[in-house]
Design a binder for these strands. Structure first.
Lengths: 234, 234
DNA sequence: GCCAGCCTAATGGTTCTACCATTAAACCGT
DNA sequence: ACGGTTTAATGGTAGAACCATTAGGCTGGC
């Protein structure tokens, strides 16, 4: 006989955060909106302020809300925080579920798709932005500021993803690169001149709308970079 | 003059969760380990139990720990929960940062890469698993259980990703499919027979290690499915 | 001897109260 | 009109008390 189901399994703060997520899906809450104050929410839900706070903590960690203190403070619905996805994958990596080469392989897949899309649909203005990035990197290299130049080189990939106009691809690119960066050692400077040359060739392929050639060029570059990363690992 | 930096910007519970994440990165904490009890943590950190609970709530939401109540209960380090990543992306979607076609396009990219890898490196046993999935789906179709058959068809893609042996790709595939599923309408049954035929052809290409042909077959299928999804949207 | 039932201790879950720190806006004296 | 002060609202922290669940030990009757 199984006549009786458990009276209650969910925890109070989960009920609260679920209610708020509901209103999000329903469109009743939109980015920029402000939730009632903690004390007021506690009153409305008929719970303690503590339970409300734990629910808010959960939503905050998920990048759904931002909390501001002081008068006129409160919990505000955000535009959505890609960093939350990144954080989760970082945790997964550190918990040992993922390896560096797993991440590198996935990154290769994303980059491949991005390059194909950019070759097919990027506007000339977008390509100019990419050129500007390479110019800036070259200038920094001449000045000997390897650190800043490396930063710009990573930004190149993010720019590339943004040229697709697809925020999902941007998100995935940022996340995977962040993961790779979190375990890398600072790259040595010896090979930096080569990167600039490769980038120039790559842009030539893009402007010619030659997706296959651009992919080949990028692949060669990434294989090399990922090898360097792997060498830095034990 | 900027002689004085803010005395404290981070909140107490953030300091606590950061400390725990530190120990994770350092390897001092491993999956399966149990954290001290809340009261004990509060004592060690010299804070209130409340702050500890909010830190644990944050870690729990991130899939880093699981909480069990009762005697011998406590906070246990998990193996890593891919669901946390999914949840974050779901939130992002609902916050309006992403569109259905964005997700579909990214999914296409991942699937393309997965197919190429599977064609290149899948073991015969893996391919047999895929065949078994198709057989089961066909059987369900004959019985008229469209619901269960659709479920199996989605599982096919997850199996495919698992054949790559890369958990990152598995994670991305699961997440993106989950996202697509969360906004789809139940597909109509009229086209289901066609899917089985396509799958059989696809497997033929895989066994022949013909990545290009397999990709073409899968692309055609996904383009169609995504169109159906889009049609279900306003 | 054994076993069902009870009891106890440990732990997370919840509530309540009090107070602090920060912030913006209202207020007031000059 | 200006500038400083006060006030009120809000999130952040602390501490205590109690509840619900769970594991394990205890006990008494068979």
């Amino acid at each position: 006989m199984e006549d009786f189901a458990p009276v209650r399994t969910q925890r109070t703060f989960e009920l609260i955060s679920d209610r708020i997520r509901e209103q999000l899906r329903a469109g009743a809450l939109r980015p920029g909106d402000k939730l009632p104050a903690e004390r007021e929410l506690a009153r409305q839900f008929g719970t303690s302020r503590n339970a409300v706070r734990e629910a808010l903590r959960s939503l905050e960690h998920g990048g759904v809300i931002e909390l501001q203190k002081g008068a006129r403070g409160g919990a505000f619905i955000t535009e959505g925080d890609p960093g939350a996805v990144s954080q989760s994958m970082q945790d997964l990596l550190h918990l040992g579920g993922l390896t560096l080469s797993n991440v590198a392989e996935a990154r290769l897949a994303i980059e491949d798709a991005v390059v194909a899309l950019v070759a097919a649909r990027a506007a000339p203005a977008d390509l100019d932005l990419l050129d500007a990035n390479i110019d800036a990197a070259e200038a920094l290299l001449r000045e000997g500021d390897v650190e800043a130049k490396t930063e710009l080189n990573m930004e190149f990939h993010n720019l590339l993803a943004e040229c697709t106009g697809n925020p999902v691809l941007v998100l995935l690119m940022r996340t995977l690169m962040e993961l790779l960066r979190s375990v890398n050692r600072p790259l040595t400077a010896e090979d930096t001149g080569d990167v600039i040359r490769r980038r120039r060739r790559f842009m030539g392929h893009l402007r010619a709308r030659d997706a296959a050639a651009a992919q080949t060029e990028m692949r060669a570059h990434l294989d090399r970079v990922h090898d360097l990363f792997a060498a830095g690992q034990p």
